Amino acid sequence: MPRTTRSTLLALAAAAACLVGVAGVATASPSRDDGTGPALTAPGLDESLTCSGDLADGSAGEPVLLVPGTTLNPDVNFDWNYARAFTGEGRPWCRVRLPAHATGDVQVAAEHVVHAIRTMHDEAGGRISVLGFSQGGMVPRWALKYWPDTRGMVTDVIGIDPSNYGTIDAYPVCGPGCVPAFWQQRTGAGFLRALNDGPDTFAGIDYTVVYTVTDEVVVPNLPPAASSELRRDGAGRLANVPVQAICPVHVAEHLSMGTTDPVGYAVVADALDHDGPADARRIDRAVCLRDVMPAVDRAQLPANEARLLAQVATSVATEPRVPAEPPLREYARG
Rank of each mutant, 00 (worst) to 15 (best):
R3F: 09
T5C: 11
S7G: 15
A15S: 14
L19P: 08
V20W: 06
G24H: 11
V25D: 08
T27D: 11
T27M: 07
A28D: 15
S29W: 15
S29G: 14
S31V: 15
D33P: 02
T36K: 03
G37R: 02
L40C: 04
T41C: 08
A42N: 07
G44E: 05
L45C: 01
L45A: 02
D46W: 09
E47H: 07
S48W: 04
S48N: 10
L49K: 07
G53D: 11
A56M: 00
S59M: 01
S59E: 07
A60T: 06
A60Q: 10
A60R: 09
V67R: 04
P68L: 06
N73M: 13
N73L: 14
P74I: 13
D75M: 07
F78W: 10
Y82M: 15
R84W: 01
E89Q: 13
P92W: 13
W93Y: 14
A100W: 08
H101S: 15
A102W: 13
A102N: 15
T103P: 06
V106K: 09
A109H: 14
V114K: 00
H115N: 05
H115M: 03
H115S: 01
M120A: 09
A124N: 04
G132R: 01
G137N: 07
A143D: 03
L144C: 06
L144H: 06
Y146V: 10
T155D: 00
D156G: 00
D161N: 07
P162Q: 07
I168E: 13
I168D: 15
I168H: 14
P172T: 05
G175P: 12
P176D: 06
P176C: 08
C178T: 00
C178F: 02
A181M: 10
W183F: 01
Q184K: 00
Q184E: 03
R193E: 12
N196W: 10
P199D: 14
D200L: 11
T201I: 00
D206R: 12
Y211V: 00
Y211I: 02
E216P: 01
V217I: 02
V218H: 03
N221Y: 04
A226I: 08
L230P: 11
L230Y: 10
L230E: 10
L230K: 09
R231G: 02
D233E: 09
G234P: 02
R237V: 02
R237F: 04
N240Y: 05
A245Q: 10
V251E: 11
G258W: 03
T260D: 15
Y265T: 10
A266I: 00
L272D: 02
A278W: 02
D279R: 15
R282P: 07
I283Y: 04
R285D: 13
A286I: 05
A286T: 10
C288R: 05
L289E: 14
V292Q: 06
V292F: 04
P294C: 04
R307E: 09
L308E: 14
L309M: 12
Q311V: 14
Q311E: 15
T314R: 12
V322G: 12
E325I: 03
E325M: 07
E325P: 01
P327Y: 08
R329L: 09
R329H: 06
E330Y: 12
